[in-house]
Write a protein that binds this DNA or RNA. Structure first.
Lengths: 112, 112
DNA sequence: TCCAATTTGTTCTATATCCTTGAACATATC
DNA sequence: GATATGTTCAAGGATATAGAACAAATTGGA
């Protein structure tokens, strides 16, 4: 992107931020993937999720923290993510941009 | 993207589709850029706009048609774009995916 | 006890697509 | 030719993708 405006989010990034926000501290790679799948029927591979998480943390929009091992069977520790104040701001902005462009239009579409 | 699901839109693509829809046949490179800037205060370079238009037309989400020269001063002919039925569908889908993830959440934010 | 099998989760690799700017080019009027 | 308007090109960086590789935790049987 050469020199991006500096405060833009890709569509996966928006979805990941929304899921992290929703999960309020309980979000980690797998649960984020599942949350998006359950709510929006959109299936991302884990590779996509983790890549986005890494970028978002790098930009300061997320923080991460290792969890304790659970007594559930086996498996590696989870890496929990949380959204930061700048993260909320940039997400709000991105959603708002689209909202403004949608204002007052009707795409048609069959009523459910 | 390797093998993408096949029906996904980048964030610029969503904005461009929305602007084209709004302009109802009167949308061309420059007016699309201006529409987005005016409505959403989001400034895209023309290169970004044209690149997205080209991709979207390639996927069958847009059609284009050359306009007649206007008697306005000078300048090249405009290339008018219109959204197709599949374009509307995929746009609807993309917006819907985000909507579902937003459902019921409050990002805070200072009231205007 | 210990270690192989199993489970759960993250990281890495390679590649494709998307996005970006600025310059170049084209075409129309004056 | 000068100027105005609009589109196309070129090159590179950012984002997205799938799947394999790797890591770490629990369980159960020899």
């Amino acid at each position: 992107m050469g020199t991006m405006k500096g405060s833009d989010l890709g569509s996966v990034e928006q979805h990941v931020l929304l899921a992290v926000f929703r999960l309020r501290g309980k979000g980690y790679g797998v649960s984020i993937r599942d949350e998006i799948a359950a709510r929006a029927e959109r299936d991302y591979s884990l590779g996509s999720i983790y890549a986005a998480l890494e970028r978002l943390e790098g930009k300061g929009y997320l923080t991460s923290e290792e969890g304790e091992p659970t007594a559930e069977r086996g498996g590696r520790r989870k890496l929990y993510f949380d959204i930061t104040a700048p993260g909320k701001r940039v997400l709000q902005d991105a959603l708002n941009t689209t909202d403004k462009l949608r204002e007052g239009i009707d795409l048609g579409g069959v009523p459910a």
